[in-house]
């Protein structure tokens, strides 16, 4: 599953297991984009820049994701959330919708308090 940056300094890591994490984007231009010591097998890629830094700095993420299947690709994502009263007053888990950026699917990301964040496919476009 993809890792992505959203241009606001956040890296979203969305696992196939149905959970997701965010990490602050700490990579800056001028820093190494990748680690030459990490050589991917044939047909795989080492993630670079923002995604790569999260991948390299967090062993559990790296272990879970493995190697990249492709180079990172830019896309214009979309983010939308329901209006109205804050979810905490409605006694429901806050969530928002994110354009996955690929395959035309939209994910509903639940920000679970004190627990792993979960996600599901909500719709398509």
């Amino acid at each position: 599953m993809p890792g992505s940056t959203d241009g606001r300094g956040t890296v979203y890591v969305i696992y196939n297991s149905g959970i997701w994490q965010t990490f602050p984007d700490t990579w800056q231009i001028g820093q190494p984009e990748s680690d030459p010591a990490l050589v991917p097998p044939s047909g795989r890629y080492q993630p670079v820049q923002s995604i790569g830094k999260v991948w390299r700095d967090n062993p559990l993420v790296r272990q879970e994701l493995g190697w990249a299947l492709e180079p990172q690709t830019p896309f214009t994502g979309r983010f939308q959330e329901p209006s109205g009263a804050p979810d905490i007053f409605l006694n429901r888990v806050p969530y928002f919708y994110v354009d996955h950026g690929k395959w035309g699917i939209v994910l509903r990301l639940y920000a679970v308090n004190m627990g792993p964040n979960t996600w599901e496919v909500a719709g398509r476009y």
């Binding site: 599953m1 993809p2 241009g7 994701l65």
Partner: peptide, 13 residues
């Protein structure tokens, strides 16, 4: 909200 983002698929996860 439009987001300029990068995406990447991984073998695991």
């Amino acid at each position: 909200v439009a987001l300029s983002a990068f995406g990447q698929d991984f073998e695991g996860g």
